[in-house]
Amino acid sequence: MALIVDALSWALLIAGVVLGITGAIGTIRFPDFYTRVHASSVTDTLCALCIIAGLILQAGFTLVTVKLVFILLFLWYTSPVATHALVRAAHHMGLPPYLSNNASADAQKGKS
């Protein structure tokens, strides 16, 4: 039983790390601001869930688990809102999204 829980926990932790690295690569490699924020939001939500769930399985029924659940709730609560605020601010300042058939984005690309 302990072995199964441990294996599950490690699988979750590794999945979380893979998602975190995916988010980091996406943040660097994606073409424009909006897609990059999309990549980093994966790190904020699913990666956090996987890592914290893995840690909860390691901690068992203790006070640490309660704290981890609170941390997860807090992260899930704030991170999407922060992403929303970021994208909203960018949109408000008139940053055009990068589209394949978007002339204004091409002009923006040529400018920068």
Binding site: Y77, T78, V81, H84
Partner: peptide
């Protein structure tokens, strides 16, 4: 108005 931000920050 900023509905998402305002509601969420009010809760937080």
């Amino acid at each position: 108005p900023r509905p998402v931000l305002q509601v969420m920050s009010k809760l937080l």
